[in-house]
C-alpha cells in the first residue's frame, strides 16, 4: 500500500463519516445523539490527514516526473522527445531500478526509500465506506428485536419517580416508561388510563398479539436491546412498520413475576401508521 492509496483510504473514510454525521442524521441509526461532535471531529481529522497526504504525494509525483524531463531537455535540446519522453523517463526510473541515473533516485526513493509502505490491513478501512454507501444500513428493526429476547430490565427508577398521570385524553409515553410503570409502580398509575405509544411492529409467536417495539442503546447499535409491549385488540401491521398505538394497560393476572421474559400488555383501541422518526432509538 503506497502513500497515495493510504491517503485516499483515509480521505474516503473521513468523507463517509462526515457524510453521515455532519451532513445528515444517518448517524442516529448507529450511535447516540450526543456523539455527533466527536464524529464530526474524527471525520475531519481523517479527511485532513488524507488530503495533506494526497497533496504531498502529488508533489512528489510531480517532482519525480519533472526531474527526467528537465534532464532530457538539457541533454537533447528541444527535439522530438517532448511527446513521449516524459512517460518513458518516469517509467524507466521505477522499472529499471538498477540504473544509476537521475530517474532511479526519484522513482525508487519514493516507493521504498522512506519506509512509507502502509500495512495491508489498512485496506479494510474502505469496507465501512462501501457498507455506508451501498447498504445504507437503517436503524435496527424487527430482525434484531426478535433475535435478542434477553432484554435487560429497564434502568431501575426510584418508585417515587413515577409522577401521577394528569390531564385527560391519551398520555404520550415512551415504551420504557410504560414498561417501568407496568411492573414497578406500586400506585399502579396506568390503571384505566389511555396511553399513546410509538414504536415499530414485531410479529409474535403467540396468537392474537404482536409487539410494539423500540430499541434502546446502551452505548451504540451493537449492544442495543428491545423494549417490547405486547399489543392485543388490533391486527398486526407488517413487521417494521412504525405506528402510534392508543390503548390501555392490561394489569397482569399473576401475583409474582414468572421466570423468563414477560412483556407488559396493552389493549389497543387505535392504530396510526407514521413515518420512521429521525431518532429511531429510545433514550
Amino acid at each position: 500500500m503506497n502513500r497515495l492509496s493510504q491517503s485516499l483510504v483515509l480521505a474516503l473514510l473521513g468523507g463517509a463519516v462526515l457524510r453521515i454525521s455532519a451532513f445528515s442524521t444517518t448517524y442516529l441509526n448507529y450511535v447516540k445523539p450526543g456523539f455527533r461532535p466527536f464524529l464530526i471531529g474524527a471525520g475531519a481529522v481523517l479527511l485532513i490527514l488524507g488530503a495533506t497526504g494526497l497533496v504531498q504525494a502529488w508533489r512528489m509525483k510531480e517532482g519525480q516526473r519533472d526531474g527526467p524531463v528537465h534532464d532530457h531537455r538539457n541533454e537533447d535540446g528541444a527535439g522530438d522527445g517532448s511527446m513521449h519522453v516524459p512517460g518513458a523517463g518516469a517509467g524507466d526510473g521505477a522499472g529499471h531500478a538498477h540504473r544509476q541515473g537521475h530517474g532511479h533516485e526519484h522513482g525508487h526513493g519514493h516507493e521504498h526509500g522512506h519506509g512509507h509502505e502502509g500495512p495491508r490491513v489498512a485496506w479494510l478501512m474502505c469496507l465501512p465506506v462501501f457498507v455506508i454507501f451501498l447498504i445504507a444500513p437503517p436503524a435496527l428493526g424487527s430482525f434484531a428485536a426478535a433475535r435478542s429476547d434477553d432484554t435487560p430490565r429497564p434502568r431501575s427508577q426510584a418508585l417515587s419517580a413515577f409522577t401521577p398521570l394528569t390531564g385527560d385524553g391519551p398520555v404520550d409515553m415512551k415504551i420504557g416508561e410504560f414498561i417501568g410503570r407496568a411492573w414497578d409502580d406500586e400506585k399502579r398509575s396506568l390503571t384505566g388510563r389511555q396511553v399513546r405509544l410509538t414504536g415499530f411492529a414485531v410479529p409474535s409467536r403467540k396468537q392474537g398479539q404482536w409487539y410494539l417495539t423500540r430499541m434502546q442503546l446502551a452505548c451504540c447499535a451493537a449492544d442495543a436491546f428491545p423494549l417490547k409491549v405486547a399489543v392485543k385488540g388490533v391486527p398486526a401491521p407488517a413487521a417494521d412498520t412504525w405506528v402510534e398505538v392508543t390503548g390501555t394497560w392490561i394489569p397482569p393476572k399473576f401475583e409474582k413475576m414468572p421466570n423468563g421474559v414477560v412483556h407488559p400488555e396493552l389493549s389497543a383501541t387505535g392504530l396510526v401508521k407514521i413515518d420512521a422518526p429521525a431518532e429511531p432509538y429510545e433514550d
Binding site: 450511535v31 444500513p137 452505548c219 451504540c220 447499535a221
Partner: peptide, 9 residues
C-alpha cells in the same frame, strides 16, 4: 448496522 455502529462509535 452493527458493523457500522462499532466502527463509527
Amino acid at each position: 448496522t452493527i458493523f457500522v455502529a462499532i466502527c463509527v462509535q
